[in-house]
Amino acid sequence: MSFVIPFLLVVFALIATGALLARLSRTNTSTDKNNTSAMIEQVNAVLPQTQCAQCGYPGCRPYASAIIEQNEQINRCPPGGDKTITDLSNLLGTPVIPLNNECGVVKPPLVAIIDESVCIGCTLCIQACPVDAIVGASKLMHTVIQNECTGCELCLPPCPVDCIELLTPQQTAADWQWPRPA
């Protein structure tokens, strides 16, 4: 029976220390919060900032915090396409998964254009635009600031006269790219 006491002691000491450390690792909340927001920032930097809400969250940052805090899937960003999924998987160390088709499909970059002759000046699209890229006033014509438009399509549903169209932006010399060599 001589071995029972030291045995129990050893086991108890180990379990106690382990439990103590486990407690320690959970209780440090203030740094945890900082860490979380830093991680959200890193994830947000990878997202395309289209703010299209196709992921089911009201913007890119909310989606980023959902990824970190609620372990949301990384395949809910159609504008980012495969590149965003790969970047996120590299960042978070999770496997690459195909895009969730429920969120949408990958499209070429688009830019909204308002048919100014049809626009009735209802300001509904201005309220819908997540990046303030539409200018205009009540009962006056609206127009899209082409450079700021992210092509999120959020202005399409509220328009009562369907005067907004999404077009592929015209190729300019500045953003022309050399073709990929065979």
């Binding site: 050893v10 086991v11 180990l14 379990i15 220390t17 382990g18 450390l21 486990a22 320690l24 690792s25 440090n28 740094t31 945890d32 860490n35 979380t36 830093a38 991680m39 890193q42 970190i68 960042l91 978070l92 160390g93 999770t94």
Partner: peptide, 29 residues
């Protein structure tokens, strides 16, 4: 008892990594 020792040290390491580099903590998962 060895598993317990290792668990203890691992727990300790995890705390350090969590504090130092949260992203690495997540990546190592």
């Amino acid at each position: 008892s060895f598993i317990l020792i290792i668990a203890l040290v691992v727990q300790f390491t995890e705390i350090i990594i969590r504090q130092r580099s949260p992203m690495l903590h997540r990546v190592l998962g």
